[in-house]
Amino acid sequence: MKYAKIVFSLLALAFIVSGCGTKRQYFEPETLSGKLSYDGSLPASIVDTVRDGATLENGQVVTKKGLSSVILPKDYVYYGENNGRYIAASKCGALVIVDEKKNTLFQKACDISIASAALKGNLLALVLASNELVLVDINEGKEVMHLSQENVYALDSRIAAPHFLGDLIIFPTLDGKLVIVDEVTKKPIRDVVVSNEKFFGNVIYLQVLGDRLVAATKSKVVSISPRSINFLEADVRDVIVLKNRIFVFTKDGKVMLTDADLKVLKDRKFTFATFAGTIYGDFIYMIEKGGYVIATDIDLISTNVYKLPDEIESYLFTTEDTLYYENHFFKLNRKP
């Protein structure tokens, strides 16, 4: 979570267990297909990211559509966008919705910090850091739903946002569930448990494609269709959903290609690779923290590795065809 406090003793214990004398091993490609250079610069460096956007130091926002002209209020960061309306929140939980002309459309005072948010019409869906699910009517300025979930103790920083699907609202909880709410009645109609881990068990990925919903925690992926619910256990770093296939990227450098029901068709291992981000087009591009782009076709047959100008040591954001890092960007779908 963006502002979650991770208990120091847990970090200390993890450090001791892992062994302070262990030397980290790095991904080293056998051959390089070329070197990449930046195509241009951003007006400021990235200071915060969520799955669908990044906040720059000057208050501007990069979304999946590219660099926006909106300027967020000072000390606020981006959470989501809908029809030119931008959701932003501060560290203490103050929230605003603004447009590109700096008009404030809605605001909420400091309370509990925001984990994730989404907006559709007059409905603002929030997942709070306390694992409470909230619906706010921004026209009326009042809550129309408030659901408390199980307590959580530590969170993965990758937090999925709520998703509006027809007359349903899908809330990804911080304790590893999907709570499906009827938009009309504002009542929950179904829960789906992805995983039930108390530590770092929040939903980190949520995507709907056609009639299929795919979600993941750090340890499990679920694929839900009108016909079935299927699970895949993995040490998940990221997920990409295409029409008839799903790619699961693991923390130990493996890429798993599955069908829509999560049956593994093929996998490839990139030894010691640490994936910092993934995007796709005609190829799948894996951004490796050591400073590489690993490009593979969607059948995981051919592979090319390119050297980035820098190692990935701070915030990274990717759109369908562009990688943004610090205050630089370049297009990934062009020939290097």
Rank of each mutant, 00 (worst) to 15 (best):
S18R: 14
E28M: 10
K5T: 08
L262I: 07
V241E: 06
V127M: 11
D297T: 09
F329K: 03
V17C: 06
F27W: 05
D191H: 06
A216L: 10
D182V: 05
A115T: 01
L42Q: 08
C110A: 15
N131S: 13
N82I: 01
F275Y: 15
L300K: 07
R245I: 09
I279W: 00
D235L: 15
M145R: 09
V221N: 02
K64C: 02
D75Q: 14
N327K: 11
L67H: 05
E28T: 10
K91Y: 14
K177M: 08
Q207P: 02
A89R: 07
N131T: 06
G201M: 01
T49M: 09
P309T: 10
D48F: 15
K218W: 00
D299S: 14
V239T: 09
L209V: 13
F249E: 07
N139I: 12
T303N: 05
A88P: 04
S9W: 04
Q207D: 10
F330L: 15
C20N: 06
L147D: 03
Y324V: 03
L133S: 06
Q149D: 11
I16Q: 08
R227T: 02
K269F: 07
L155E: 01
G141Q: 09
K186H: 13
K186E: 00
D259Y: 04
Q149C: 07
I87Y: 00
P29C: 09
A215L: 02
P172Y: 03
S68I: 01
G66K: 04
P73F: 06
K307M: 14
G53V: 11
T185I: 07
D167A: 06
D111S: 15
Y76L: 11
L36Y: 10
L67F: 13
T63W: 06
P73W: 12
I246M: 11
V264Q: 12
I224Y: 05
E30H: 13
Y292W: 14
A276G: 15
N304K: 15
A4T: 02
A216D: 04
E57K: 12
Y325R: 13
Y76S: 06
I298H: 12
N304V: 06
G291Q: 10
V127S: 07
V222W: 01
N58Y: 08
T303K: 11
V305N: 04
L155A: 04
L128I: 01
C110Q: 13
T55C: 15
F270M: 06
V96P: 05
F171P: 00
H328R: 13
T296V: 15
D156Q: 02
G253W: 07
V305H: 04
L262C: 04
K220P: 00
S41N: 12
Y153E: 04
S223D: 06
A117G: 10
Q25D: 11
K331W: 05
E140W: 04
K101I: 11
Y3M: 00
Y26K: 10
G59R: 12
E311Q: 14
N139M: 11
D211M: 07
G176Q: 02
Y38R: 12
K102I: 07
Y3V: 05
L308R: 11
G93I: 07
